[in-house]
């Protein structure tokens, strides 16, 4: 009789090892997505005409099913973690670019004018005024991207057990141990909720000037 947390040996990981692997596969893409989307978003803010086409391209990319993405990439990056992480980074990008653009654009024009009038150059203005004010919007985007990334990693299971906790779903089938699937679903949900809560905490720390009233989103 195997327990709830007894992981079949074919996965070559303990329960905690799978969690670590899952977080790595889910969070690195979000981080990469954030780093790439910041300059793209800034370009879209600078050159307004760029935004609609960027939105169009990202929406189409978002609509491509992750599995199709994985399969296509196998040819280039093999059945590996990288194959799983590249599409996840692209999805994060799709969520984050509009979030950052809207956030930066939501900075009141008078605030910008005041910053300019005080003699802040474009770079300082970006880092000291626009970016901090856009933090709540950026974090909101990060929350959506992170939670969906944690969920999507599991699909990596289909390309040769690259789905971290998702691989438990496969084993649940193979070994007729439904409790492994329950374990996988609950663990992933718990990770998502914890990551989400952590981001809310980060926002509170970064934006002490925001009213602490709870709101949806």
């Amino acid at each position: 009789m195997s327990g709830f947390f007894d992981i079949p040996s074919d996965l070559q990981h303990s329960y905690l090892g799978l969690i670590g692997l899952h977080l790595r596969e889910a969070l690195i893409p979000v981080l990469v997505g954030l780093l790439v989307s910041l300059p793209i978003a800034q370009l879209c803010v600078r050159f307004r005409w760029l935004y609609p086409p960027v939105l169009g391209v990202t929406t189409v990319l978002y609509a491509v099913p992750s599995l199709a993405f994985f399969v296509f990439l196998i040819d280039y990056t093999g059945q590996s973690e990288t194959t799983v992480m590249i599409p996840l980074a692209v999805y994060s990008l799709v969520v984050l670019v509009p979030a950052i653009v809207d956030g930066v654009r939501s900075v009141p024009p008078e605030t910008l004018a005041a910053a300019t009038a005080m003699g802040l150059g474009a770079v300082r203005r970006y880092f000291q005024v626009q970016l901090p004010i856009a933090v709540p919007a950026i974090i909101a985007g990060l929350r959506v991207a992170t939670v969906s990334s944690i969920s999507l990693v599991s699909i990596g299971m289909l390309i040769g057990n690259q789905g971290a906790l998702g691989n438990l779903l496969n084993d649940a089938n193979i070994y007729h141990r439904p409790e492994l699937a329950v374990n996988a679903v609950l663990t992933m949900a718990a990770l998502a909720i914890l990551a989400d809560a952590a981001l809310v905490l980060v926002r509170r720390v970064l934006t002490p000037w925001m009213p602490r009233k709870g709101a949806a989103r």
Binding site: V144, S151, L169, A181, V185, A189, A192, D196, A215, A216
Partner: peptide, 27 residues
């Protein structure tokens, strides 16, 4: 009920779609 709604939405998003599919198929 905005706060309750935010909780439900977060919980809904947190449930892994593919995992749920496999689990429900097994069950």
């Amino acid at each position: 009920g905005g706060n309750a709604l935010a909780l439900i939405a977060t919980a809904g998003r947190a449930l892994p779609t593919f995992g749920l599919l496999v689990l429900l198929t097994i069950l």
